[in-house]
Amino acid sequence: MKDAETRGGDPTTPAKTTTLSKLGLGGTLYRGSWGQWSWLLHRITGAAVFIFLLLHILDVATIRISPGAFNAVMGIYRHPVMGLGEAVLVAAVVLHALNGVRIIIVDAWSQGAKYHKHLLVGVVVVFLILMAGFLPVHLGNTFGWR
């Protein structure tokens, strides 16, 4: 019994271009596991923090203009929205750092690859602990609770 449906047009029509395919990530998603997603997160947090770093060096460099100019720039950081942005930034830095330690352990310890998922759990746990220590202080400063 022949029962076949064709979807997506005839074979001579190429699929449309997507940004993902331009990045070499086209086609369907590969259903990798924790290792794949931790790598992707490591890359995203790294790129994001790097972009921030470029801007941060520039904003600190305004200290050369005058004390008033520098303080004005720092004033921008005190805005509550920036405070929340800083929280996200610190989260990205901490995650990238902890996963980086995990990668070093996987590389250096002969049993590292075997226990990489356990190490990932450790990364998440330490991340939550550190953020639990940081957020109350930082958000307190941001919203004037302290």
Partner: peptide, 30 residues
């Protein structure tokens, strides 16, 4: 990377976790 754990950790601790955090960071502080 290993070096940065110490350097960034200390940077964040001293700038964001002492005094009033970023609100204390001004010309005089730096």
């Amino acid at each position: 990377g290993a070096l940065l754990i110490v350097l960034v950790g200390g940077h964040l601790a001293i700038n964001l976790m002492t005094g009033h955090g970023v609100h204390s960071v001004d010309f005089a502080f730096v």
